[in-house]
Nucleic acid binder design. Structure first.
Lengths: 183, 183
DNA sequence: TAATTCCGACCGTCCAGACGGTATTAGGAG
DNA sequence: CTCCTAATACCGTCTGGACGGTCGGAATTA
């Protein structure tokens, strides 16, 4: 017997998923409250009940993405033998894997982040967090930083090149980055 | 005696400069046609006369930024002794210099690029151009790519951290990147 | 006269958020 | 168990404002 609370969190979930779907199917520009509500089979009022503003919707969505990414890094971390640079190598793999975060999303992030200070700070804090973790991974800090930056660039990179894999293929880059962690 | 054409190109110039100022002072979200026109001391109709759409304004603005950056790289290139990795090193310096491109701008780019296919392609082509030039600079392609990515990341990085220079200072990163070009 | 530059009021659209509802449920008092 | 009351979940219309772009003209120049 589903309680009232259950229904509520389930609706929230549906809204988050709808957000993803809207972006994925109709592009970042189509991300309006009406669209999301419609896609989720919820009225606009219902949406605003759970997320009192668009910003808060995006915020929840962002947190969702962060969590997914963290999860992905964790999985790779498990597979990696314990040694200096273990986390860094997991981070590399996760950054270039395509399951965790559908990259259409990056567009939205940047677009919304341009407008909302809050979101900017969120991203900043997340990045700061990773920075500190990666710098204390047994690899010299400057090198670790550079590697992280290269990984982060892969995000914005794929934002542009829909069908990537130019002359320097993705796997080549991963290999190169991994090599750098070992000297 | 100022001809009519002169006045026209001068107005175009004023509009471009106004664009920069609006972004810089009021943030990316405030980049509206009205604002730009007002800032430039030109009527909205005047603006639309020179740039028939917002997209075309941004496009011109982007081209302006590209040109500035290219110029900046060129300057560093001159100072660099001819050797393998010369261009790459100039690119590194230019990426981390703060004069060439006020970094507030990056936000706008991403925001607008999210919506306009044309702009996306422009950025893509520019990046592709640099990629090819940097890969043929006497440095192994994978390494060169990674270094370029780290440089590109510095853009989006500074986008977030207003007052950067965390534990790993900017100069440290530059040094590290330069070191990588030498082995 | 014809073209160019620029003006500024105006239009249509889009969209976030407000608001005034209804329905369902939780939970305590009797 | 039953009422009563509040809170919670959700609905859907409406609006106010912002913003990109149009249009009919005025002024200047070629």
């Amino acid at each position: 017997m589903p309680t009232k609370q259950d229904a509520a969190t389930q609706t929230r979930q549906r809204l988050l998923e709808a957000t993803v779907r809207v972006i994925h199917n109709q592009g970042a520009a189509a991300l309006t409250l009406d669209q999301v509500a419609k896609e989720a089979g919820v009225s606009k009022g219902g949406l605003l009940h759970h997320f009192p503003s668009k910003e808060s919707l995006i915020e929840a969505f962002l947190r969702h993405l962060f969590h997914q990414f963290e999860q992905c890094v964790y999985e790779y971390y498990q597979k990696e033998p314990p040694a200096a640079g273990r986390l860094l190598r997991a981070y590399i793999h996760a950054s270039y894997a395509d399951q965790p975060v559908p990259l259409d999303m990056a567009v939205v992030l940047f677009a919304q982040i341009a407008q909302h200070e809050t979101l900017r700070r969120m991203l900043q804090e997340d990045q700061q967090m990773w920075h500190e973790r990666l710098v204390n991974d047994g690899i010299p800090a400057p090198l670790a930083t550079v590697i992280r930056q290269a990984c982060d660039a892969s995000w914005t990179e794929r934002l542009l090149t829909d069908a990537d894999d130019g002359p320097v293929t993705r796997q080549t880059i991963i290999d190169e980055l991994l090599r750098l962690t070992r000297l």
